[in-house]
Amino acid sequence: MHRTHVRAALAAALLAPLAACSSTASPTASDAKATRSADDRPVTVTVTPTGRQATPGKPVTVTADGGSLTAVTVTDAEGARLSGKVAAGGRSWVSHRKAAPGTAYTVTATTRTQAGTTRTTRSSFTTAAADKVNKVDWRPGTASTVGIAQPISLVFDNPVRNRAEVEKQLKITTSDGTEGSWGWIRDWSGRDRVDWRPHAYWKPGTKVTLDAELNGTDSGADGGWFVRDYTTTFTIGTRQIVKVDLDSHQLSLVRDGRTVRRIPVSGGTPGGDKRSWRGTAVLMAKEGTINMNSETVGLGDAYDKMVDYSMRLTWSGMYAHAAPWNAAYFGNTNHSSGCIGMSDADAAWFYAQVRPGDPFEITGRETKGVVDPGNGFGAWNVPWEEWRNKSAL
Rank of each mutant, 00 (worst) to 15 (best):
S391P: 01
I172Q: 05
P198G: 12
T108P: 01
A285V: 04
A164N: 12
A347P: 05
G331P: 07
H335K: 13
G378T: 03
P27Q: 12
W138Q: 13
L299H: 10
I263T: 08
G116M: 14
P264E: 05
Y303M: 15
G272F: 06
D346L: 11
R81P: 00
L214N: 05
D40P: 03
S83W: 00
G288F: 00
P101K: 10
G374H: 00
T120N: 00
V370Q: 12
D137A: 11
T280A: 09
G90S: 01
D39P: 02
W182S: 04
T24H: 14
A13G: 08
D273W: 10
D192H: 04
K305R: 15
L10V: 13
R261F: 07
L253F: 05
G51I: 03
S294Y: 02
D256Y: 07
Q240G: 06
P49N: 09
V265L: 07
Y230N: 01
S175K: 13
E179P: 03
T363I: 12
T173R: 14
A20F: 09
V297Y: 13
F234N: 03
A327W: 08
F360K: 11
R139F: 02
Y351R: 12
K390P: 08
N334R: 13
V43Q: 10
R261M: 11
A19P: 01
M306L: 14
Q53S: 08
A8F: 09
A164H: 11
A352P: 10
E295F: 06
A320I: 12
R122N: 03
A32D: 14
V45C: 06
G141F: 03
A130L: 09
D176G: 09
G102Q: 13
I340R: 10
A320C: 11
T44Q: 15
N293P: 07
G271M: 05
M284N: 06
S153K: 10
S68T: 15
D245P: 07
V282R: 08
A80G: 02
D76P: 04
